[in-house]
Design a protein around this nucleic acid. Structure first.
Lengths: 373, 373
DNA sequence: AGGGGTTACTAAAACGATTTAGCTGGACCG
DNA sequence: CGGTCCAGCTAAATCGTTTTAGTAACCCCT
């Protein structure tokens, strides 16, 4: 694949580190005007009247000189930057990174790049970054877990629960389906007394997911008992992006669950981190997972599969969500109107070792006494 | 903080979704020329001869009109894009995401944004992306775990082992120190027979880290035994970015280690994923960690802390490496020459529950018989 | 009064594309 | 033969800045 000689790039001016080839140079080399070269290269409708032979000459010259258009000049004139802005709370966090990966795969195919900014959940930073991105003429925004107060002023797509708002299309997981998957898996195993971790009050997904749970529970004839429901962050745990904090919280809440009432055979946690923490608390208390308690998480983070036992969890198709967001945004930029305000993406249930039938066969038995220490 | 009325953005034209305010409009509103406004706003040395009063008027007008420069126009003229290109194998992978987070924090302060491209370890894609980024006038590159064959033609910084090359400064972890940290921790606990997982042959860090291990072992008087050294990927495991594959591999290699020779009291793995897999294999075989075997990982991925026991590991300061890379690149762009070709970043040892004294006290005892199954 | 030096600006040329309006020369038509 | 049409281009404006080279006005000096 390497070229001949010491230069393996296409030979000629392009390979050199020096100046780039401009449209004018291509035109001059052909004895044509830049205008002609431009319309031909861009397959503009105006080029219809230009004979095939000239087309060929133009492309050939461009190739030979290694011409690459200067996107900045193009953007200035055509008012299109072929780039979009992506706002995330923090890029190194698994959720954002997964979604970004999906966004990227789609955009690149269409010649778009994206600029990212992490706002650390600070609303004023978020707004400032949106301004900076507008200066750079981004054509639209993708807001990952980034609630805004005001319409962005550009076509936008929000990933993860967001208030309805002008200009923004929401992409969210199908929470009803997620809850149905998890709960019918547990119900199918014979579980009847299920404990829940509800999300943090400010998390975008909390409300919708909880509604999904209530709905699915009702459909399945399961009872959601207040005494088996704990709300993460309810005791003013410092909000932090450290996953370890979430793990500790899950651990503490798992223990609390045992103390309040040992009478449950399964836990459906709000996310994997808290599920893993709780699972650890159960194991520490001498319970076996899944023989004594089953645990279901949410997200399918990287660590989930490596637990012992592996964590059964509802996988959020983060990549898919990113792809969808990118696709919708580009369609809107291309002028395709009439998109729904809300697009949902379907989650999957990943069954691993942390779930099994409740103790005492498929029919629940009081097992409070089973708790040993 | 919100403004009055229904518009909480600065009032006036800027708040409206419509046209942006241009430099010319600011100039006209003041009866000055765009040139003057430009030099004042940019604090150009030329503006020295312009009286304070005019400065004030200009700034005031710009503020009132909500003027925001068009970065694209600026880039075209000044040949500076205030953006850099970042190449990563895959953005959702923990390593890249961590480094990106560090890069970002530094760049933003200096008014830079970055464009990312994931090349999935395909050299031709990588080169194509570098071209695309050059079209967008990026001023330099940061190559995260992205070896290139040819000088990039722009100032660049590479994170993670990279051949020396023109234009590129390398930022790497101090492998010697990393190995010394891990091994002296184990030696300090009394371990003498230590098993190793060596990295995949093509991984950028493999060679350097192994050299560090050999060096540290020699310093500490530890013997590195070939029969206790396994090389990851040596049996043509399909290269994949799935961490689960790495985990499986660690699990298989952990078992193999036990089969080949149970005679070791500690394992220093190439990364956390394989360490976790091996740890699981040891536990499955009825060994206790750390009572029977100690395990040390490398990286400190998110899941490391959630294991049972928590994994002792060498933390790669990914954020710091990203920050350093960003800082060096910006300095080079600002014309500060004379950077070393190689800048190292110091790792930390995170001690958790997976390491302890070898069985039988601080003096090693043969414990082959201790293996039960 | 003429020269020199500031001070406070401005005109105009970039930057490298896209795009609109138009020009030229030949074919065709009545 | 004059007019219309079309094919095949080109000239020139434009996008919104930055930057270089001036210029006009004033003051100071000798």
């Amino acid at each position: 694949m390497s070229g001949s000689g010491r230069n393996s790039r296409p030979n000629g001016p392009a390979g050199r580190a020096g100046k780039r080839v401009t449209l004018r140079q291509v035109a001059d080399s052909l004895g044509l005007s830049p205008a002609t070269v431009s319309v031909v290269l861009n397959r503009s409708p105006v080029a219809a009247s230009i004979p095939q032979e000239t087309h060929d000459r133009v492309f050939e010259a461009a190739r030979k000189l290694g011409y690459r258009p200067n996107m900045v000049a193009r953007s200035l004139r055509s008012r299109r930057s072929f780039s979009i802005g992506v706002l995330v709370p923090e890029i190194s966090e698994g959720y954002a990174a997964g979604v970004l990966s999906g966004i990227e795969s789609h955009l690149r195919d269409e010649g778009y790049f994206y600029l990212v900014a992490s706002h650390r959940t600070q609303a004023d930073l978020l707004e400032e970054y949106m301004q900076l991105l507008k200066e750079r003429l981004v054509e639209g925004f993708i807001l990952v877990n980034s609630p805004i107060r005001e319409s962005p002023g550009l076509p936008s797509v929000a990933v993860a629960g967001h208030e309805p708002m002008a200009d923004v299309t929401n992409v969210a997981i199908d929470h009803d389906r997620a809850a149905r998957l998890a709960l019918s898996h547990l119900a199918g195993l014979g579980h009847e007394r299920i404990a829940f971790f509800k999300g943090h009050a400010h998390s975008a997904d909390t409300a919708d997911r909880w509604q999904g749970i209530l709905k699915a529970a009702a459909e399945l004839g399961l009872e959601v008992r207040p005494e088996l429901t704990l709300e993460l962050g309810s005791d003013a745990v410092e909000e932090t992006f450290s996953p370890e904090a979430g793990y500790e919280e899950g651990h503490a809440f798992g223990r609390r669950l045992l103390e309040l009432s040992g009478d449950f055979s399964a836990l459906f946690a709000f996310n994997d981190v808290s599920a893993i923490g709780a699972m650890r608390a159960f194991l520490d208390a001498g319970l076996r997972v899944p023989e004594d308690v089953s645990v279901v998480g949410f997200d399918d983070i990287q660590g989930a599969a490596f637990q012992n036992p592996g964590l059964t969890t509802v996988r959020q198709p983060l990549r898919k969500m990113g792809e969808t967001a990118g696709k919708i945004l580009l369609e809107r930029l291309a002028g395709e109107d009439g998109h729904a305000d809300l697009v949902t993406v379907v989650p999957d249930l990943i069954v691993r070792g942390s779930t099994g039938p409740p103790p005492g066969g498929s029919k629940r038995r009081r097992r409070k006494g089973a708790r040993r220490r």
